[in-house]
């Protein structure tokens, strides 16, 4: 049943990566801003779980809701305090600001909590295993897949059938024209940041769930995964981001199995080289959005 195990692992990893990528693209699609601070929303949620678990008696489900809310709030606040004032004026300044926000949040945790990793209390479900179709797998994996499916369905409905969702899609297509419809620019952008942070918070639960600990640099890997997955899938398409997440999960698992042991430490480099090569052939990603400006010559 090695194949069954591989399938479930890949689906679970791919689901997590799809959520990671989706959160980044929500903001990118509208602002065309690559938000380097995105990984830190994952970190904020992780530390919220640590603090609530270690210092308060609240039940685990409250912890999780608060953690997700904290990530969404942080995302919104970074937009309100930093990005909003910079983004209209210069693209590079906005990019560097997002990097500065990333450095700021990381070092705030270094300074006020600790450079060392902290253990996070999780409900027992995260360490149990179950058997599906003869495959023994951590319950965590199944939860990841299920949560992702529910979220993707919810977001699809939101984007398709609510006026805010329509406005967000319109803004990703033609931002100024959307404002001409009376849609407040700040409303759409704030909402994009909140959804982005919300997804980062959900990702954090499962990300932290794998190691049951959180450290100041925990956000970096999700950020890189989001980069790769969105670039593979297409930076201008929500569907593309999800597809990119699953493809990345598959690629990662294949490389993990096929690379000889001596080369496994180069896995990340291989991943990135594949991405770079892929980009050179198809800079718009697997799924092309409306926006076409990626390649010069």
């Amino acid at each position: 049943m090695i194949f069954g195990e591989f399938v479930i692992n890949t689906l679970s990893l791919g689901s997590l990566y799809a959520l990671v990528a989706l959160g980044l693209v929500f903001v990118y699609g509208i602002l065309k801003l690559v938000n380097f601070a995105y990984g830190e929303y994952v970190m904020v949620a992780g530390y919220s779980m640590y603090i609530l678990g270690a210092f308060t008696p609240v039940p685990w489900w409250v912890t999780m809701i608060v953690a997700v809310a904290m990530a969404a709030l942080t995302s919104y606040l970074t937009e309100l305090v930093a990005f909003r004032r910079v983004r209209q004026k210069s693209d590079n300044a906005a990019l560097v600001t997002s990097f500065a926000v990333m450095v700021l949040l990381q070092n705030a945790v270094l300074l006020f909590v600790s450079p060392r990793a902290r253990a996070v209390k999780l409900p027992s479900a995260f360490s149990e295993s179950i058997t599906i179709l003869g495959v023994v797998t951590p319950l965590r994996n199944v939860l990841t897949i299920a949560t992702t499916l529910v979220l993707l369905l919810g977001l699809t409905l939101l984007m398709k059938y609510t006026v805010l969702g329509i406005a967000m899609r319109a803004a990703a297509d033609k931002f100024t024209t959307t404002r001409l419809m009376g849609v407040q620019a700040n409303l759409v952008i704030s909402f994009a940041f909140i959804i982005s942070g919300f997804l980062a918070g959900v990702v954090s639960i499962f990300w932290v769930g794998r190691s049951a600990s959180v450290d100041p640099l925990i956000g970096f890997t999700p950020l890189l995964i989001a980069f790769i997955a969105t670039v593979i899938g297409g930076m201008n398409s929500l569907v593309g981001a999800v597809a990119g997440g699953y493809v990345y999960g598959l690629l990662f698992n294949i490389l993990s199995i096929t690379l000889p042991a001596s080369m496994i430490s180069y896995r990340d480099a291989f991943m990135f080289m594949i991405v770079i090569l892929f980009l050179l052939l198809r800079p718009e990603g697997m799924i092309k959005g409306n926006y076409t400006e990626e390649r010069v010559g």
């Binding site: 006026v163 329509i166 406005a167 899609r169 319109a170 297509d173 033609k174 100024t176 024209t177 959307t178 404002r179 001409l180 419809m181 009376g182 849609v183 407040q184 620019a185 409306n290």
Partner: peptide, 30 residues
Amino acid sequence: PEAILRKGISLVPEGREIFTSLTVSENLRL
């Protein structure tokens, strides 16, 4: 622009600027 639209001025922009990925219905809804 959004405040001015609410005052009652609406622009049909040059080049039409239809939201191409949105349906006609969604365009009108916006």
